[in-house]
Structures are given as structure tokens and as C-alpha cells.
Amino acid sequence: MAHALRTRRGLGRWAQTWAGVATVLVLAELASRTGLLPQRYFPPVTEMFTALFAALGEPWFWLATGQTLQGWVLGLGIAALLAVPAGMLLGTSVVRYRAFRAVIEFLRPIPSVALVPLAILVYGAGLESKVFLAVFAAFWPLLIQTLYGMQDVDPVAVDTARAFRLTRAERITRVVLPGAVPYVATGLRISSSVALILAVTAELVIGSPGLGREINAARVGGAADLLYALIIVTGLIGWGLNSMFAAAERRVLHWHPSQRGAR
């Protein structure tokens, strides 16, 4: 009986969750159909999804999605290859850290999009521009997280390693690096969304091929239903990537105090 009760309550929660989404969708549909919102700007939800399913059958849609993801993966990958070793290098030496701290603090807050004109100038409107911007933006969160991770090592753990006469290299590989992994995971999650933002920005502003450019084209062409459909697609991509990294983060973080009792 208790089991049945629990299930019923679980069902109640599930129903609440989807009731919210359903209500918003129905209200939006009605507002558009009745003309409460101008149909030119707010097409009915059903039409958005019709456009979305139509797009799913078009090769250009899959090409654009692939191009956006290509910019994202290259941007994040290159940023990780640069930022993680740099963070490790700076995080393992007080001298190196202090030498570059001010430089980092100055470069980090520069809005990456300020470099859009430079990217156009040097790389043109293609993939390189997109990747350059994504790398620049994704580099900083990863660098900072790696640095924190290297510095936030439990001193007792280091002393323990010392007491057991581990060498400096062993201390770094056995104690410091494992401790930094959760931080790097968090950095990857943040940088992943930043890289996606910059990929779409480049497509939108510079006109690099990808979903961002298609969204803008839909706007210029007055295809409001397609515009909304493509925004929904980018949202789903962002949500999917974020969930993927969040799940990975939970896995590598399972031993960390912040996760205990947090389920």
C-alpha cells in the first residue's frame, strides 16, 4: 500500500511538471490563434512544430546543426588542450602563478565578442573565425577552474603524501591531480556552454555557416515559424550538452564532500 501511495505521489509530481509545459504551450497556441498576439510575430505553437518536423527532413538543417556542433567541439577541444595544461603549470608553482595572475585577471573579463571584428579581419567568415572566438571564450573558465583545483588540495593529504616519502612528481600525479579532476569537470561544463554561445554568435554576426545563420535567414525571410523552430532546436542542443556534462560531473565528483548527501 505504501508502495502504491508513493507511486501515486510520484505520478502527481510528474503530472505537475508536464502540466506546466502543456499549459504554456496551449496558452501560446490560443493567444496566437485568437490574435491576442500578432500571428506575424507569434505563430501558433503547432505551426512552429510543423516547421520543426519539416526541417528535420531537410539536408540543410542537418548540415547547419553539424556545422554548429563542429564549431562547438573544436572550440571546446582546443580550449581544453590549452587551458588544462596551462592551469596545471600555473597551479603547481606559486612563482608562476603570481607572475601571471595580473595578466589573467586583465584578459579574463574581456568580452570575447569584442574580438569578432578581429576574427573577421584575420580569419574571414568561415569556420576558423567561429573556432577562434569559441576557443578564446572557453579558455578562461577552464583555466580558472583548473587553477582552483590545483590550489585547493587538502594540506593534510599533501602532508600525508610527504610523510610517506612520495616524491614531488608522485605527489602531483597521485594527490594533486585527482583532487583537481572535479574542478576540471566543472570547468568543462561551463566552457561547453560558453563555446556553444560563441559558435552561434559567430554564425549570427559574422555569418559563419550554422544554425545561427539559419535563424537570422529565417528572420530576414519572414519565416517566423521556422525562426522559432530553430531557436527551439538550439535550446534543445544547449540542454542536451549541459545535461551530458552535468551527468559526467556528478560521476567524477561522487567522492567529493559537496556531493555527499546531495544525491
Binding site: Y41, L227, G235
Partner: peptide, 13 residues
């Protein structure tokens, strides 16, 4: 989760 710049065309529309 929607990448922020994707909202620009919506805003402009």
C-alpha cells in the same frame, strides 16, 4: 539552455 545570441533574431522580429 537556449544560446543567448539565438534570442536576438527573435527580439528583432
Amino acid at each position: 539552455a537556449v544560446p543567448p545570441p539565438a534570442l536576438l533574431p527573435f527580439g528583432m522580429l
